[in-house]
Design a protein around this nucleic acid. Structure first.
Length: 426
RNA sequence: GUGGGUAUAGCUCAGCUGGUAGAGCGUCGCGUUGUGGUCGCGAAUGUCGCGGGUUCGAGUCCCGUUACUCACCCCA
């Protein structure tokens, strides 16, 4: 029988890298929490119709990449390919939009897309996301964008760019779309691209192939055909972004893969990630709520790729979440000593001091080696002598010094040492 | 989904034109009394991704398959 393995395209995180994953996830949602966003825990699967209506039937995400299945009651369900539609459904279902607006929410977790896996492109992908619903204030667009920017910066990332554009609205997009399609009709394109031009002409703009790009000179861009309201909105977004000290690049050819975006659209791309360079993206959506049966409310949000952000950190030589998993490592010599340290480690943990113990009755040398590997700054040693005295040897591993203290003072001594070390680092 | 590359010890990889496997790192042990990190010595570990085929003989050639990976596509 073949060796069991994880499903294709599913990244797993375990000690060695999992602490970095957690640190990235926390860093990406921290800015939102500082701006009044509340947490939502969404279902991993939803009625398939939610995504068909919300994300758009013609999008690749829905038409080709969704994990859809029938449950035992004959309902068609789909593993969530993205988060925004689910948040909208939750907001409508629980009437969150009946209170004060905007409703500000964030979430984090796994999403599923049946794509061909690649480095940074997974079938189970992790995202941190946020939505601000019920206000079309351009200052809110700027806040949302700056929170993503801040998340990346707080990790120390530098090699990324914020790309920004406006996709227009129901008013100005249709005429622009016709203009664009007329332009594309005159180009020499292969069958697949021609089809794309018919379904989603904007997509053709960010085609990476030279054969296509070379033909796009003089192509009309949406930003140059915005209606008065959209133009004002876009100008105000940029003014607010300047106030927030966020830098961006104007990207008129930026396209989003989900149908619901209107007006402000943005994407964060990292320069060291190859083809899968998008580490986050989002935008405003005007018609989404109402198309899902809710009020006519505009919203704006983003999704940031946790997996890709971690890869970006690694590409820049950053190591988020680095450091030992424990503060203290206990080394017993003999059965009685072990009993003492088992009890003591329990007390230390309860007081908030991260503590591990040398298991397996190894020799002192081996146990010290394990203590060293653990990275714990302090090691507790108890042998016959200490059992008799009622003391513990507390060793400072980096200094190599050690002191003997009574059992009952160990906790307060360690707490004091650790606090002092903490102070020295910051 | 389309096209290319790779697949050898836990990790990184070497194995020339086919003759039944190696290094470094890591792990474990030892360097005598209760102390890690350095150094020295020693040990364990692989059905050479998986399945077929060619051959007296395949890690080495051929086919298939799976996974990873690169580009397109898509997007986080």
């Amino acid at each position: 029988m073949a060796q069991l393995q994880a499903p294709k395209g599913v990244p797993e995180y375990f000690p060695g890298r999992s602490s970095a994953f957690l640190a990235v996830r926390d860093a990406l949602n921290a800015p939102a929490r500082k701006a009044g966003y509340g947490y939502v825990e969404l279902p991993m699967f939803e009625d398939t119709a939610l995504y068909v209506r919300g994300v758009g039937e013609s999008t690749d995400v829905v038409s080709k990449e969704m994990y859809t299945f029938e449950d035992r009651g004959g309902r068609s369900l789909s593993l969530r390919p993205e988060g925004t539609a689910g948040v909208m459904r939750l907001v409508i279902e629980h009437s969150l939009d009946r209170g004060q607006l905007p409703v500000k929410l964030w979430y984090a977790g796994a999403f599923f897309r049946a794509e061909r896996p690649q480095h940074g492109r997974y079938r189970q992908l992790q995202q941190v996301g946020l939505e601000a619903i019920g206000s079309d204030d351009p200052a809110l667009d700027a806040e949302v964008i700056s929170l993503a920017d801040e998340g990346f910066r707080s990790l120390g990332l530098k090699q990324f760019t914020l790309q920004l554009t406006s996709l227009g609205c129901a008013e100005c997009r249709p005429p622009y779309r016709e203009l664009l399609q007329a332009f594309l009709a005159n180009l020499e394109l292969d069958e697949a691209t021609r089809e794309r031009a018919a379904v989603n002409p904007l997509r053709v703009l960010d085609d990476k192939r030279e054969s296509v790009q070379s033909q796009l000179a003089g192509v009309p861009y949406m930003v140059n055909h915005l209606c008065a309201d959209c133009q004002t909105h876009y100008d105000d977004v940029r003014t607010a972004l300047r106030l927030l000290k966020v830098e961006w690049t104007e990207s008129p050819s930026l396209v989003r893969g989900l149908d619901y975006y209107t007006r402000t659209a943005f994407e964060f791309t990292h320069h060291l990630l190859g083809a899968q360079s998008g580490i986050g993206g989002g935008g405003r959506y005007d018609g989404l709520m109402s198309s899902l049966g809710g009020q006519e409310l505009s919203g704006i949000g983003w999704g940031l790729g946790t997996d890709r952000t971690l890869l970006a950190c690694e590409a820049e030589g950053l190591d988020p979440g680095a450091g030992a998993l424990v503060d203290v490592f206990a080394v017993p010599m003999g059965e009685e000593a072990k009993a003492v340290l088992i009890a003591l480690s329990g007390e230390l943990r309860a007081s908030g001091i991260r503590t591990d113990l040398a298991y397996g009755n190894r020799g002192l040398k081996g146990a010290m080696k394990a203590a060293d590997r653990s990275g714990a700054p302090y090691v507790l040693i108890v042998g016959e002598q200490e059992v008799a005295d009622g003391t513990v040897v507390v060793k400072n591993m980096s200094a190599g010094t050690q002191e003997s203290v009574a059992w009952e003072s160990v906790q307060s001594l360690l707490a004091a040492h650790l606090q002092k070390d903490e102070g020295n680092h910051s």
